[in-house]
Design a protein around this nucleic acid. Structure first.
Length: 227
DNA sequence: CCGTGATCATTC
DNA sequence: GAATGATCACGG
């Protein structure tokens, strides 16, 4: 039965997650005492917050893995009728003025993605939030190939930002990882640096995993048609 | 105010 | 249709 304190072990976390598989979100919401929104337009993070609560995640909105003691990151991932991701996956915000000095191994992308509990959830917008069902959880760590792809993109993107190329960054860059805006709205600004090292105000950005990458992760573990 | 939880909605 | 850029709520 999920929904108490943080899990004491990986095995306990998995037991809790397995117990949720197949459940409709309305059932889980009732169990943890969360209201069910009629749609997600004004409640975009509702599914993630619900599952966090149901599993006993303890990190709040801190920049650290959701299960601090276990060093495991929780990600709900919306999937279509075939089990394929319908959205990209946010990883973390980018410290724009410092990213150039960070080593890959110490980066938040590397650390957060070292161990992720993926929980598929029906993501078809035509299904009401309360009717959407949770899928089989997957506790994942990147294999050598995935790790190398992530490192390559991270080096390119963070290197570009570190060299003052923030203005040249678009969502088109990166094979598996991309950089996109991450803010309340387009007017929000954060301190960054341009190519000459001058301080500039730029929109906050975050690293995201492309859906094709998370699709390959799910496909590696579940029997999902690639096309 | 900022980072995390993401999905929306317009553009390509 | 897919993908990018924009956006919304909440906790601390």
């Amino acid at each position: 039965m999920p929904g108490f304190g943080p899990p004491e072990s990986e095995a306990e976390l998995l037991r809790r997650a397995d117990a949720l598989a197949g459940e409709a979100l309305r059932v889980v919401a009732a169990r943890v005492g969360m209201p069910v929104p009629p749609n997600l337009r004004r409640h975009k993070g509702w599914v993630g917050a619900l599952v966090e609560r149901a599993l006993g995640a303890d990190a709040g909105s801190r920049a650290t893995p959701d299960f601090q003691r276990l060093a495991i990151e929780l990600k709900t991932i919306p999937v279509d009728g075939r089990g394929r991701p319908v959205e990209s996956t946010f990883v973390c915000t980018i410290p724009l003025s410092e990213i150039g000095d960070v080593e890959w191994e110490a980066s938040w992308v590397r650390r957060k993605l070292a161990r992720v509990l993926w929980i598929p959830v029906e993501g078809d917008p035509r299904i009401a939030p309360g009717d959407r069902r949770l899928g089989t959880p997957l506790l994942w760590s990147p294999n050598d190939e995935e790790l190398e792809a992530l490192r390559f993109d991270w080096e390119e993107l963070s290197g570009l930002i570190g060299r003052g190329g923030l203005e040249r960054i678009t969502g088109h860059l990166g094979r598996v990882l991309q950089v996109r805006p991450k803010a309340r709205n387009a007017a929000v600004r954060r301190r960054g640096r341009d190519a000459d090292g001058a301080v500039i105000d730029a929109p906050p950005r975050g690293f995201y995993l492309r859906a094709r990458f998370t699709q390959s992760i799910l496909a590696r573990h579940f029997a999902i048609p690639q096309r």
